[in-house]
């Protein structure tokens, strides 16, 4: 792209340095200190005393839970979301932006109301049961399945949207050409369409994976507090002003995820799929 437009990035770079880089640096510093709100600044010291937090049982379990739920959510959202995005592309509806708005519309309602609504119908006795006479989802409140269900159907719009935008650009004649050459529809999809939509898949996966990894409200409500994710712990540490512990965990998550994103970019021959 033309160098002429580099100037446009400048304000954002400054913005990122002020609002991301400096706080990030501060977080790293806080994570190696004993800082919390009730200490005055003169008492703050550099210490690694709280780093055993990283190896405590509940932290490890929470990390594992976050990874497992975020990965599963991303995979399931990808499979179902890709399917739906593909169907929308093939549908005859002309104005597909309307469809996309419809897909994302549920997210405009408050997350707590939606999640408690889901919890409501996952209970044994619920509002839907009092109308239709049976439990639609069964009595699953508090189970891992409930959490996964909630996560998938909350974040899936974030998967559908970028995949659709990627699919939408693909020239229909490519598909026709492939079919004319006698390639089976499945092979056409796998060899032609899918690779071309990969950028959308990657964007969608990032947008589903990151919020699920760091979030906590949905698992907390739908597991009835029985499943602890790393987001819960960070949130609690900050709420009770144990800033050093909270920062430490937040920094570790950031390093792990940004590091893995970076590694993927390095090893990716094209180097373009991810970023």
């Amino acid at each position: 792209m033309n160098k002429l437009y580099r100037g446009l990035a400048r304000p954002y770079q400054i913005w990122l340095i002020i609002l991301v880089f400096i706080p990030l640096l501060a977080m790293v510093l806080i994570s190696i200190s004993n800082y919390n709100a009730s200490l005055s600044l003169s008492e703050v010291q550099i210490t690694f005393a709280d780093w055993d937090l990283l190896f405590q049982h509940q932290t490890l379990v929470a990390f594992k839970n976050s990874l497992v739920y975020a990965s599963l959510t991303t995979i399931i959202s990808f499979v179902l979301g890709y399917f739906v995005a593909y169907q929308i592309k093939q549908s005859r509806i002309k104005n597909k932006f309307i469809i996309l708005t419809i897909i994302i519309l549920p997210m405009w309602s408050n997350l707590i109301l939606r999640t408690e609504g889901l919890l409501n119908i996952m209970e044994e006795n619920n509002i839907l049961k009092s109308i239709i006479g049976f439990s639609l989802l069964g009595n699953i409140a508090g189970t891992p399945f409930a959490v996964l269900f909630g996560l998938v159907f909350t974040y899936m719009p974030f998967m559908i949207l970028p995949i659709y935008t990627a699919l939408e650009k693909i020239d229909i004649s490519l598909e026709e050409a492939s079919q004319d050459l006698g390639v089976t529809p499945f092979k056409t999809f796998w060899k032609v369409i899918f690779p071309l939509s990969l950028k959308g898949v990657v964007t969608g996966s990032i947008m589903v994976f990151l919020p699920t990894m760091a979030g906590f409200a949905i698992p907390k409500i739908l597991s009835k507090g029985n499943i602890v994710l790393i987001g819960n712990i960070i949130d609690q540490k900050f709420l009770y002003t144990t800033f050093n512990d909270g920062s430490l965990l937040a920094v570790v998550i950031l390093i792990v995820i940004l590091g893995s994103l970076l590694i993927i970019t390095r090893f990716d021959k094209e180097g373009e799929t991810l970023l």
Binding site: H57, Q58, A62, N232, Q236, K237, Y240, T242
Partner: peptide, 17 residues
């Protein structure tokens, strides 16, 4: 004190994990 609250929070998280 902060440290006690932190220990209590941790204890509950242990039970839940």
């Amino acid at each position: 004190p902060n440290d006690d609250i932190d220990a209590i929070n941790t204890m509950i998280q242990q039970i839940r994990t």
